[in-house]
Each structure stands twice: as C-alpha cells, then as structure tokens.
Design a protein around this nucleic acid. Sequence first.
DNA 1: CGGTACGCTACATTATTTGTAGCAATGCGC
DNA 2: GCGCATTGCTACAAATAATGTAGCGTACCG
Lengths: 111, 111
Amino acid sequence: MPKPDVATNQRAVRGSRTGRPIMALLDLLGRRWTLRIVWELRDAPLTSRALRIACDDASPTVIQARLSELREAGLVELLAGDGYRLTPLGRELMESFLPLHRFAERWSRRG
Amino acid sequence: MPKPDVATNQRAVRGSRTGRPIMALLDLLGRRWTLRIVWELRDAPLTSRALRIACDDASPTVIQARLSELREAGLVELLAGDGYRLTPLGRELMESFLPLHRFAERWSRRG
DNA sequence: CGGTACGCTACATTATTTGTAGCAATGCGC
DNA sequence: GCGCATTGCTACAAATAATGTAGCGTACCG
C-alpha cells in the first residue's frame, strides 16, 4: 500500500516517501561515513582534510558528498578558515546520540 | 564464486581495530538499510519478506546480508516460525535510539 | 497431492565507493 | 612580487556494493 508521492523534504533522501521525519533521518545517517563524520565533529571543528584522516582516510569524494548532504540538512556548517563544525541542530543530534555511545560499550562486552 | 569467508562473513567491522566500540557500532549501523531494519523491528517480529516490504521493497540480497550482520552482532535473532526480532540487546539499541526519533521531529521543522 | 509462504541465493544490471591525482583560491614568509 | 603550503573541492578509472528479478529447497495446510 505504500505508494505515496515523494515530495522529498531533502534531495534524494531514501525512505522519505512516508513523510515521516525519522525515515529521512535514518536514510541520511545510514549512508556510509555519515554517522562517523558527525561523530568526529563532536568536539571541535575539523578541516575537510583532517576529517578525512580522522575517518580512517576515507576518499575525499565521499567525505565531500556527505558534508554537502549534512550541510543541506542543516547539521553541519563550513566556517571560513576553521573547517567544518556541527550547527546547533547538529549538536542536538550529537546529544541524541550519546545513549548510543553508552550502548556501544555494553554491546562490545557481549558473549 | 566468491564464497563468503567463514571467519569474517564480511569484511571486519570498520574501526573495530581501534578498540573503540563506538567505531564498530557506527560502521555497522552506517551500512545501507541497517538502521531502517532495526527500526522496522522495533514493535514486533517480522518475516524476512515482510521486512523487505517494510523497508521500501529493498532487494532481498541486502536485506539478507544485513540480517546476517545483525545476527552476528547479537542484535537480531531468527525465531523458528515467527521471523526476525530484536534480541534483548537489540531492544537496548532501540531504546538508545529513541532520542533520535524525537530529534527527527525537531529536525524536520528546521528553517 | 496442489498451493502458499518461508529463508535464502544467483546473477546481470546499475549505482556507489575507493584511490589517486590534481585544480583554483587563500595565506604566509621572504 | 615570488615560492610554498594548505584549504575546499573535483575528475575519473577501478573496485565494490546494491538493485531487480527469478528461483531454489523446505516446510505447512487444505
């Protein structure tokens, strides 16, 4: 039955067809390196190159693509001269993320 | 003929070598459809086919691959006759996830 | 038995990622 | 000015992953 129209609130965010924001967010964050980028920006701004290195030397192509998506999503911004940093909204995302960090610790101790 | 390697049925979870669990988790969840699958299983078990449909009709290839990864990660299990469901650990993940759901609502109302 | 649903796989086509190289623009010491 | 380093960002071929469709083998139910 899901045959709804796209009307993406964002460019080509997969899964946004339902109109439920969580779907758009899950799709955005479910792209390779996106979560990691947000995570690496949690403390301080990073230049695109520093970010690349922090992200296990991912290729600049993907990093740039993800940064564009994150900027469009209003989660990240480019500061003249200081590289990229999370916007206030991005910092909210980061905070919503902390429980996952704690979960990761528990998860790593699984049998 | 590339038969899946038995020891690591897929490449090692990226970042797991750093010893930082969050990296392994971010990598696991940052693969296409993984977040969505966990999300769709939040309420009730689903058969692999129902899950496929719930996930915007993603191809069975990826769904099966992700389910294997999630089972290996101890987050999802296959019930004889009832399809897939979150393990207790998977439910913990889901709960760690709820703040993100609330964030998605705020995010969708951004300017 | 026939029909249906399950988990799962094959495989060719298509899309995305990787890795390497490089560009134009800015800044800094000289 | 000049050379040199660093920035954000792009090109592009090769490698890898996802898609879409079909189908297998195994159950279950009539």
